[in-house]
Amino acid sequence: MTRTVRAKAPAKVNLQLTVGAPDADGYHPLVTVFQALDLWETVEATPREDGEIRLTLDVAAGAPVDASGVPLDASNLAWKAADLLARTYGITDGVDLHLVKGIPVAGGMAGGSADAAAALVACAEAWDTGASRAELAALAAQLGADVPFSLHGHTAVGLGRGDQLTPAMSHGEFHWVLATQSRGLSTPTVFAELDRRIGVREQAWSDFEVDREVMTALMSGDAVELGRCLTNDLEGPAISLMPRLGDVLDAADAADACGAIVSGSGPTVAALARSRQHALSIAAHLRASRTADAVVTASGPVTGTVLVQD
């Protein structure tokens, strides 16, 4: 009997994102600290006998997501994940993949990577591949730099292209306010802007190491201290491409956030709160400032990709 398997994967925020000079292949080595947040992408996988992969999608109720530009063909990361898994394990069945998107598209929060991770887990179960989590993680690294963390979740240090993960000790729960924009930013474009700024000496390469202050704040569960040491080398380039992000950061500061940062390559701005109630207050202030197209709250760290039972 054909059965539908459902898996979900979390959003991420980068607490530190340090970018090194590009290598011979044009890739920038990274030092990053990820935290998984309780916004989710859900993927439903239903095997089909004709060997085809087909995608459909919906937006989760109440989610600030414009999915109109999400491709439903072989360029989609979830499609690529299913195809890679099938080729690796000799699967001849196809699959219907239904995506339910709860993470902003092109928002620097790894929504596409979460789709890929959820598709790997759902398809592995639906096709009964017997793949271990370590084997799925190896496939995830072939799909994109953020996909392994989408599988892993919690809080982790990422090295290399961000895919070499080490769990990071973290105490307690952190509360975030996420200010999103209806227009996304292209990650390659933001990296190209960083390279341009450094080329004309508008910006310098950062010290390439894990920030000890970030790790100490995580271990102590101190949101105020963590907020003071949030760093992202891509923030300046993202703001230059979308100046409105500077207004969002200013509004978060005026709302007494512990700290605020452009998440990844943007354009989502993540503001850290002292408590859940404080997050609601910051969210109200950001909505009133009209600097973002949507504002949501989220908490972390949370688990990585998991199967969802009916």
Rank of each mutant, 00 (worst) to 15 (best):
A257H: 01
G246T: 04
T268I: 07
T268G: 05
V269W: 02
R244P: 02
A257P: 03
P243Y: 13
D256W: 09
R244H: 00
G264N: 11
P267D: 09
R244S: 14
P243L: 14
D247V: 00
L245N: 03
C258T: 06
L245H: 05
T268K: 02
I261Y: 00
R244I: 09
S263H: 10
A254F: 00
A257S: 15
L245W: 02
P267L: 08
M242Y: 04
A255R: 08
G259T: 08
L245I: 15
T268H: 08
S265V: 10
L249K: 10
D256E: 15
A255I: 07
A260T: 05
M242K: 12
V248P: 05
A255H: 09
A252R: 00
D256H: 15
G266F: 11
A254E: 15
A255G: 04
P243E: 12
S240H: 13
S263M: 12
D256Y: 10
V269F: 03
A252V: 04
A251H: 03
G259L: 11
G259W: 10
A255K: 09
P243C: 12
T268C: 15
D253H: 13
D253N: 13
P243D: 09
A255E: 09
V269E: 06
V269M: 04
A254K: 14
P267H: 08
D250C: 02
L245M: 11
G246Y: 02
S265Y: 05
D253G: 14
A255D: 13
A254W: 03
V248K: 03
L249G: 06
P243A: 14
G259Y: 08
D250H: 01
A252W: 04
S265D: 05
V262D: 04
S265N: 06
G266T: 11
I261V: 15
V269I: 12
S240K: 14
T268A: 12
R244Q: 14
D250K: 10
S263W: 07
A260R: 00
A257Y: 01
V248H: 03
P243G: 10
C258E: 14
S265H: 08
D247Q: 11
D253Q: 14
R244T: 14
A252G: 13
G259F: 07
I261R: 12
A257V: 06
S265L: 12
V262R: 01
M242E: 11
